[in-house]
Design a protein around this nucleic acid. Structure first.
Lengths: 269, 269
DNA sequence: CCTTGTTTTCCATATCGTGGAAAACTCTTT
DNA sequence: AAAGAGTTTTCCACGATATGGAAAACAAGG
């Protein structure tokens, strides 16, 4: 949490600083005090205070007088909510995510690509203890995520290569893919099977299975995945769960009026 | 959409302007062009462009080069999502909202108070045509909302009075409550029945029934409601639906380890 | 009641944001 | 193709505006 700094920001200083503070407010689970925020961000306390006040005037931050702590404000929520409202597949997806969760007893996710990263849009959590690694709003480099790879696999090879040129191969664990040949090899499998796998490429001990969802114009728009502790998702079970993920994805495809997958669907139903 | 302006900003000009733009991005269903945003906000195009660029650097805005339009960015979503993550009752509520929706075939809502307004946190929509009046992120003056009134009713009378002093009685329709005696009269009923009613006080033709959900420390933390076209929610049916709303609310209370209602629960189960 | 650690307000300084105007694009139109 | 209309994007000199130090107003202990 320390070095979220280096707001090298190619723009308006005051705005970048304010947004930086807002991110910090969002990242902290508890409310934050002015002086702590100032210290973290490397700003003068007075400056920080003024920026927070401005954020509050617009409803993006909220000050709790009893505890003297700052929180994320309702307006931030409202604006953020519009990010998903504009993606018309998020609402209908819930039904299928929920069923997936109940069938598998693991966490079901919905995500899409944004600027080289996979953004988790929605999630129905496993009833088991484990907290979600990547809650709604979370971002992972596309190549470190089953959903990310499932979506990339829907692109023409040339575009995948170009994508990798632009974004490189950021890794999150030692097992993350880190070169194009390895990725293309995986892509081949994904297309053949109809689903993507992430074996501890995002987080140690975590395995994910994902399948793409297609939109009306024949492009993949989002992906559905199930994520679980490695030890709970193994052997034959993997295939069963993968089948269910693929099913959920194609049902959502249907629901949103999407064109059926370009890929050969996996074996026969 | 015209006059969202009047950014009287009690703070840092550049920041207020940037946040104003962000709100506009969120409010529009489509992407927006620089020049339109500039016109709406009454800013110079170059200034607008610079501010947007800054928002983009931090991920709060996103520029779609193919269409030359600006959208809300992933970081806004991430920060907004943290607003609900911190409210630990939102996730478990979904189960009950969904059941409510299925039982009543109407829209079920979850909301809480924030700065005098009721903010809709989550929603499971009716399968009927009608679009939701107040989607997640939406705000209504507390006194114009069944959920708002249900929550106010959990406060001591003195605090309700003080609340009204501070916020007044903004009205949204001719039927909205607009003075303290009328409100207190309703409050009395709410406490007796265990649920609150909104008869076209928020929107013409809309009726809502709401009940509060209690937290572990004995304060109400949020409310659950069902909203429907007036004509579809009438006579004896009202009581049946109200009962279900109250049930959902007390089940959620239980689930989050809340203390049972201070009020006499409505009749016997 | 004084001390210590805050948050909040004030203000002179020069930094930093501003908006006009020009340049670089993108599409249509002829 | 070449010209034109309507954009988006970059540049720059000016001065309005954000800045951070310091002091004032709070709060909580000792």
């Amino acid at each position: 949490m320390t070095d979220m700094a280096t707001e090298k920001t190619g723009g308006v200083q005051a705005v970048s600083r304010a947004l930086g503070l807002l991110k910090r407010l969002g990242a902290a689970t508890e409310g934050q005090r002015v002086s702590d925020l100032a210290a973290q961000a490397g700003l003068a306390v007075s400056t920080t205070h003024r920026l927070l006040t401005t954020l509050e005037h617009s409803g993006f931050a909220h000050f709790e007088p009893t505890t003297s702590k700052w929180h994320v404000g309702h307006e931030a929520f409202a604006v953020g909510a519009s990010y998903v409202q504009k993606r018309s597949y998020v609402a209908p997806a819930l039904t299928y995510l929920r069923r997936l969760r109940d069938e598998t007893r693991e966490t079901a996710n919905l995500g899409h690509l944004d600027d080289g990263h996979l953004v988790t849009l929605s999630q129905v959590e496993s009833r088991e203890i484990m907290r979600a690694i990547s809650p709604p709003g979370g971002r992972v480099p596309a190549t470190c995520s089953a959903m990310g790879k499932a979506l990339l696999a829907t692109w023409p090879d040339a575009q995948i290569a170009e994508f990798c040129d632009r974004h490189g191969f950021p890794t999150m664990t030692p097992r993350s893919v880190d070169d194009l040949p390895a990725l293309m090899d995986q892509i081949k499998h994904i297309r053949a099977q109809g689903y993507a796998v992430d074996n501890e490429e995002h987080a140690r001990g975590l395995r994910c299975l994902a399948a793409p969802v297609w939109g009306p114009d024949g492009d993949a728009v989002c992906a559905i995945s199930v994520s679980a502790m490695m030890m709970r998702l193994t052997g034959e079970l993997t295939k069963v769960v993968a089948r269910r993920v693929v099913t959920a994805a194609s049902e959502l495809t249907e629901k949103i009026g999407g064109k059926r997958a370009k890929w050969p669907l996996p074996p026969e139903t």
